[in-house]
């Protein structure tokens, strides 16, 4: 009897919750990894910018192709991200303003254009709306054909996994490899770009590659989890991790841990938390994951071992 219950719960968990949790975790880590370097380069806003401009790209791709299949969506989002990076560079140079101002100008304009696009064109037949863009549809990424843990080794069932899962897995492996293979170069050029240039590291190309990795993570994660998680995961886990350690490798490790905790705990709290307070409704998983990452940041600000480091800085 009890065995049956566990099996039943297991089957339901695998079918309804396992894939969203795994997808949420993959998305969170894929964003947190490049986020570490963006944060240290004081470019954290670029993740924010890219995740916003994805919206007009997706709408434009829909208007051109008339479908919401993955490939044109991702191409549209990728194109929009590149256009945004170029526009930021143009505004920065022609307007002679600081990068943050240029980013703020470009991404709010493009996001607004995306919303306008949505309003004035007929997208009512498909599921793209502002709500979806912000919060994604993590809860809907269920695994219909799963019958329990055994499905994990069943090729037929595995073939019906939500496509976001393998896609994000590939993206995460790609980003992980990029950071692993170019670890020295990323570390040196992030700390001291002039020195890096002098010893032959191609700092501009590397900076561009980092932005591309960021864009790929943002676009892949956006489809599954929406821009709220993307923005939160670029910043919160790396920022929390920075307060835990004074070594870059450990910071990256901590950021992966915090991203994972945020995704799993956030999903569970969103799905089951309201029930604990007697509410029959669940809250948005994406919103809760972002909230958990924010709470972790607050906790590390209060208790992280390196939180006081700036106060210890010796005078010049």
């Amino acid at each position: 009897m009890i065995d049956n219950l566990i099996t039943a719960l297991g089957a339901e968990f695998v079918q309804l919750s396992l894939t969203p949790i795994v997808i949420g975790t993959l998305a969170a880590i894929a964003c947190a990894l490049p986020g570490n370097f963006l944060l240290l380069r004081r470019q954290a806003l670029i993740g924010d910018a890219i995740s916003h401009v994805v919206l007009p790209g997706i709408v434009a791709a829909f208007l051109v192709t008339g479908t919401i299949t993955a490939v044109p969506m991702m191409l549209g989002a990728g194109a929009a991200a590149i256009i945004a990076v170029v526009m930021i560079e143009i505004v920065k140079r022609l307007g002679r303003v600081e990068p943050g101002a240029a980013m703020g100008l470009v991404f709010t304009t493009l996001f607004a254009a995306g919303v306008l696009f949505l309003e004035i064109t007929d997208t009512s037949s498909v599921h793209i709306d502002v709500q979806h863009a912000l919060l994604g549809n993590l809860e809907s990424l269920i695994w219909f054909d799963a019958e329990g843990w055994g499905s994990l080794v069943d090729p037929a069932a595995l073939a019906t996994l939500p496509p976001q899962l393998p896609r994000l897995a590939v993206v995460l492996i790609g980003i992980g490899l990029f950071i692993f293979l170019f670890w020295k170069e990323l570390k040196i050029s992030t700390f001291d770009a002039a020195f890096a240039g002098a010893i032959g590291i191609r700092t501009r190309a590397l900076g561009f590659a980092l932005v591309v990795a960021t864009a790929v993570a943002a676009v892949a994660a956006f489809d599954a989890v929406g821009s709220i998680i993307v923005i939160a995961m670029f910043v919160c886990p790396p920022a929390s991790a920075r307060l835990m350690t004074n070594q870059l490798a450990r910071q990256v490790g901590w950021s992966v841990v915090f991203a994972t905790i945020s995704a799993i705990l956030g999903y569970v709290l969103a799905g089951y938390g309201p029930g604990w307070f007697g509410s029959p409704y669940a809250v948005s998983a994406a919103g809760m994951i972002a909230t958990v990452s924010g709470v972790i940041l607050i906790l590390t600000c209060l208790f992280g071992p390196q939180r006081k480091r700036t106060g210890q800085q010796a005078e010049a």
Partner: peptide, 17 residues
Amino acid sequence: VAYVPQRASVDWDFPAR
């Protein structure tokens, strides 16, 4: 060639020993 940039040109808060 070894080049030593100005000390103030980098962020010494960078997580490194």
